[in-house]
Structures are given as C-alpha cells and as structure tokens.
C-alpha cells in the first residue's frame, strides 16, 4: 500500500459481456449451457453502474482523477462492451482475450484482474456486484482478497475524501445499510441503487472508436485460467404454470381458503 495519498487517483473498472438482461434465455438441447448464438449481448448492468460511478467521480473531482481504464476478460466479442464503456466516458481499455465461448470462472477473472492491477497500479477498482449470467457475486471479494485490499461490496453511495485519501461507502446489507470507510487502494462493488447509468451519445460513440484498447492473453499475464468446476448439466427450472384467473375478491378468498393458503 502507498505510504501517502496519491495526488491523482487512477480508476480501474472491470466489465463483462453478458446476455442482455431482457432476453428470455433458453437452455441448449445438449443441456450443457444456454443458447448464446444469435442472442443479444450487452454490458452486465451492474458493470454499467460501475463505469457510470467512475465517470461521475471524475466529473465531481475533476483533475484529481488521473485516468479511468476499463478492462474485460472474455472472448473476441467482449471488445464491444469495452467500446460501450469508452463511449460512456472511460479513457482507455484493456481486453484480456480468451477463446470464444470459453467459460472463465470468477477465481480466474480475479487472478487476471490482479495481474492487471499489479501492472496498472490503480487506486480504486470499481466492479459490479454480480454478473447476471452466472450470478456468482464473487469477483470483487476475490480480487480484494488476492490483493489484500479493503472491500466495500454492494455499494449504494460512494464518496472520496481527498484529504484523508479515504473512501466512504454505504453498502446494502440484509435489513438496511452499513457505512464503511477505507484508505485507498480499495475495491468497491456496485449495487443497483448507486446511480443511473447514462446513455452514450452518438458523438461519444464515434469518439470511443478512436480510444486505445490494449490486448493481452491470460498467458501474457502469467495467469492460469483452467476451470475448477465442471458443469455436469444445465436444465430449465421446473415449469410453473399459471393457474386460474378469478373474477372477484370473494372468489379469490375462497380459492385461497380451499388451497389452505389462508
């Protein structure tokens, strides 16, 4: 950890390309996973919130922020989400490219991100709290553990105190909110309530095309991404059929009584 406060802080924001949140997913016929071909993908919604927070921090702190870098670990198409993040206001991107459709587990992502952090020396890493595809909710905490940095998961409010070189984070816990403060460098994961991400404007989308994206492979970074978990099968959840519509409150009450629900 740094002995004194940096004069400019560097932000790193990891993002993931996932199936779009509005898509109704289908399990493939071989039961090995879900259909991804021809399915709309976009940036994981929690990661959009992370990018937005980084951009807002710069808008608030102006010159105190030296850079905002976005990083993704994924197949060739993951570049798309880097471009989206760059269009939202990030400066440069890093694409750690893996094979198409290869599943990269959270532990591997965390190790890859650690290698990037060791290289880039950011002061604050802001991640989404979970990816909406694997729903693991692990990468932020794993990265914090590997780096031995403090972590504030599920943030709904983030403030930077420059004098103390500290962040103050309100985090969503079961039953309410908890406020933590921690010295930088630190890890924050975003909850839905943190902010409302902006839409990239057309001029910014055009500008983003010119922003630099560095490419690496996990091997370049010396990271082993071999999976630890074998997916035996993937099946749809037990179907739940809608039942009857009733036409009055009395009918509803009698149905519920009949069913023993009240």
């Amino acid at each position: 950890m740094r002995p004194s406060a940096p004069s400019f802080i560097k932000l790193l924001v990891p993002v993931k390309r996932t199936i779009d949140y509005a898509v109704k997913i289908r399990v493939n016929s071989a039961q090995t996973g879900v259909e991804t071909d021809g399915v709309k993908h976009s940036m994981n919604p929690f990661d959009e919130i992370a990018v937005e927070e980084a951009v807002r921090l710069r808008e608030k702190l102006k010159a105190d922020i030296e850079s905002i870098r976005v990083v993704t670990v994924g197949g060739p198409k993951a570049t798309d989400v880097l471009r989206t993040a760059l269009a939202m206001g990030a400066d440069t991107g890093i694409h750690v490219e893996t094979a198409d459709k290869e599943i990269i587990e959270p532990l591997s992502v965390a190790k890859t991100l650690k290698a990037i952090v060791d290289k880039e020396k950011p002061d604050l890493v802001i991640l989404g709290k979970q990816a909406i595809d694997d729903d693991s909710s692990q990468v932020g905490g794993m990265l914090a553990g590997l780096l031995n940095w403090p972590q504030a998961n599920f943030a709904s409010k983030l403030d930077y105190d420059k004098g103390a070189n500290e962040i103050h984070v309100s985090r969503e816990i079961d039953g309410g909110l908890e406020t933590l403060k921690m010295k930088l460098p630190a890890i924050v994961t975003t909850d839905l309530r943190l902010n409302e991400p902006r839409y990239a404007s057309l001029p910014n989308i055009m500008k983003a095309k010119k922003k630099k994206i560095d490419k690496f492979t996990p091997a370049d970074l010396g990271v082993d991404i071999a999976p630890r978990l074998e997916t035996i099968k993937v099946v749809p959840p037990p179907a739940r059929k809608g039942g009857a519509k009733v036409d009055s409150v009395e009918a509803l009450v009698s149905k519920l009584k009949e069913a023993g629900a009240i």
Partner: peptide, 17 residues
C-alpha cells in the same frame, strides 16, 4: 456474499454460490 469470496480466493479455490 461479502466474506466467502475472500475466503475462497485466499484458499485458491473456486466458490459455488
């Protein structure tokens, strides 16, 4: 969710959530 990923990473194992 807050504590266990940190545990898993320190043990160098995958977590099953």
């Amino acid at each position: 969710k807050n504590i266990f990923p940190r545990v898993a990473a320190l043990l160098d194992v995958a977590q099953i959530s």
